[in-house]
């Protein structure tokens, strides 16, 4: 009997488990075959009956509450032990990062100190030299052009009128194999050196604008437009500050 083939698939059809094309064919057959249609209807009725009676038991509110409590309750000890290795490794990682940071900081400080010592040495050498400057001029319009082609950047020499400072001259200085400008100023009997370097050449010196002393010389340093400025001298702190302000104002 041809219907036997179909009845085998009745369950799958009404359970929605037949592939789309087979389901379409089945649908077509159901329209034409009264026996299969009746059997199908009976099965759908039974399916619905089970569906309807399936929902029969409801949990006690007290039981529901106790389950919710048991799920929400923090499981102290296993949780603690489980996370112990994570906690330990996190602590170790934090310590490692912190010590690396401190080491880095120390390294930075050391290299900054080295740089300052080098600059102070150059300043002292300039003071001691018989020919302290390569371009002798108090005219800033002479000194600035002199550096053209000698250093890979340009800078402005401050206007010194109405100030106690006198421009003595300039020379090329070197730090970490990078050329820079050294300007020598005089205030009363004190000489001060202003070093200007490209920041790129001083990658290790990361200190920001700062005031400090090195080997009892006063030092002022700041950065501007990719250049790093150092003012070094044995004049008073006020004098260094004033000169620094003039240079900063010149940009």
């Amino acid at each position: 009997m041809a219907c036997e083939l179909w009845t085998e698939n009745l369950d799958a059809y009404f359970d929605g488990e037949l592939p789309a094309d087979e389901a379409r064919a089945f649908n077509e057959h159901l329209r034409q075959c009264a026996t299969c249609a009746a059997e199908g209807l009976r099965r759908v009725q039974q399916k619905r009956a089970v569906q309807a009676v399936g929902q029969r038991f409801t949990p006690n509110p007290a039981f529901r509450a106790s389950i919710q409590k048991s799920i929400a309750a923090p499981r102290q000890s296993p949780w603690g032990w489980r996370w112990l290795p994570v906690f330990l490794s996190a602590t170790a990682a934090t310590l490692l990062i912190a010590s690396a940071f401190l080491l880095n900081l120390q390294h930075d400080r050391r290299s900054e100190q080295q740089l300052l010592s080098e600059l102070v040495d150059q300043h002292v050498a300039t003071l001691a030299s018989a020919n302290p400057v390569d371009v002798v001029s108090s005219d800033r319009h002479t000194v600035k052009p002199w550096f053209q082609g000698k250093i890979p950047f340009t800078f402005n020499v401050p206007e010194l009128q109405d100030s106690p400072f006198v421009l003595v001259g300039g020379r090329v200085a070197y730090v970490s194999q990078s050329p820079g400008a050294e300007l020598i100023f005089r205030v009363r009997q004190h000489q001060m050196s202003v070093f200007i370097f490209q920041e790129r050449g001083l990658r290790e010196a990361r200190e920001n604008e700062a005031v400090r002393t090195a080997l009892s010389f006063q030092v002022r340093t700041w950065r501007h437009n990719g250049l790093r400025y150092f003012v070094i001298g044995d004049a008073s702190a006020q004098d260094l500050d004033k000169l620094s302000e003039l240079i900063k104002a010149a940009g």
């Binding site: 399936g54 929902q55 029969r56 038991f57 409801t58 949990p59 006690n60 039981f63 529901r64 106790s66 389950i67 048991s70």
Partner: peptide, 23 residues
């Protein structure tokens, strides 16, 4: 949760056992 309980009760046919089972 309610479906699980209902199913458990259908299987065990007993409220107390169903609760133990769900728990």
């Amino acid at each position: 949760f309610e479906r699980l309980y209902n199913f458990a009760h259908w299987l065990t046919q007993d409220r107390e056992e169903a609760e133990d089972l769900v728990q």
